[in-house]
């Protein structure tokens, strides 16, 4: 027993804790599957030009709506573009919008949450009321209204989608900062005479950031789902970009005759979202076991 403790102490803290975290993360096989899937999609998105056999936007009038063949593994679309290549590049669009939107939302939301918790009083009330107002509009109506105003470029899309999840991050950051502010260890640091900004830098921020990381990982899937939904309705990212939602929307009339054309992008979308969520749940469980199985 005693030797074990000393052996453990001999290891430097950081490396040991990182290993503990990874072991906790991959403890469940399903999380491993999710993580591998996520990494797979990320790699495809990163190296899309190397993976895709064709330029996704080159139109070949003679070869439209082909079935599976060695030349075109998933066939071609109604303009004769290679479906597989379009899907590969679609992963780029989906992941990029999802990650960008989430990063913006998490950053902005955390900042506002800190502001609300720090100032309290009227500032807090106004921010909370603003969140409530945003929440009272169905996300789809909100995004539609914003698309109408801002238009549908990729960055605009990211901003629009992040606006629907900002309230969530604001509330979460506010709650976690408030609970940390009330904790004894903050009191202890204050009573030792620690200055305000060091208090935030050393104690409050490091402790409030992990729930935000967890929710952000879980949020990427949601944003991707939202983006593809908007594209499916024809108000998402504008057409030349090969977004999965847009491909599905375009292929929709051919479900009867060319099911693969519709179902392949559907399958990609479902697989990516599921992998991302499994990965997100894994991160949550590994970072904070007490949160296990709580998100809706």
């Amino acid at each position: 027993m005693r030797e074990k403790i000393e052996a453990r102490a001999a290891h430097s803290g950081r490396g040991r804790r990182a290993r503990q975290f990874l072991r906790a993360l991959f403890h469940r096989k399903i999380v491993l599957v999710g993580s591998i899937g996520t990494i797979f999609f990320v790699l495809i998105a990163l190296f899309a030009p190397l993976v895709a056999p064709y330029d996704p936007n080159v139109i070949d009038k003679g070869a439209y709506l082909l079935g599976m063949s060695p030349l075109h593994p998933l066939g071609t679309d109604l303009y004769g573009r290679d479906l597989f290549s379009r899907l590969v590049f679609g992963a780029r669009v989906s992941l990029l919008t999802g990650v960008t939107a989430t990063l913006i939302a998490a950053a902005a939301g955390s900042l506002l949450g800190i502001v609300a918790a720090y100032y309290g009083g009227i500032v807090d009330k106004i921010l909370l009321r603003a969140c409530e107002t945003l929440d009272a509009i169905p996300y789809i109506a909100l995004t539609m209204a914003l698309v109408a105003i801002l238009g549908n470029g990729m960055l605009n899309m990211a901003v629009i989608m992040c606006s629907t999840c900002v309230p969530f991050f604001v509330r979460m950051m506010r709650a976690s900062v408030l609970s940390i502010l009330n904790s004894d260890y903050i009191l202890a640091a204050k009573l030792s005479g620690q200055s305000e900004w060091k208090l935030w830098l050393k104690h409050i921020l490091p402790n409030s950031v992990s729930p935000i990381i967890v929710s952000a990982t879980q949020n990427v899937g949601n944003t991707i789902m939202m983006e593809s939904g908007l594209s499916f309705l024809g108000i998402g990212i504008s057409v030349p970009m090969a977004s999965w939602g847009a491909i599905i929307s375009e292929a929709r009339p051919y479900l009867t005759t060319h099911p693969l054309y519709v179902l392949a992008p559907c399958a990609c979308l479902a697989a990516l979202i599921i992998c991302l969520n499994l990965f997100g749940d894994g991160i949550r469980d590994a970072l904070d076991p007490s949160l296990r199985g709580e998100t809706a």
């Binding site: 949601n222 593809s228 599905i248 519709v262 179902l263 559907c266 599921i274």
Partner: peptide
Amino acid sequence: CASLPSFVVALG
């Protein structure tokens, strides 16, 4: 199923 887009399910 918790996070499948409804239109994907609908198309399926």
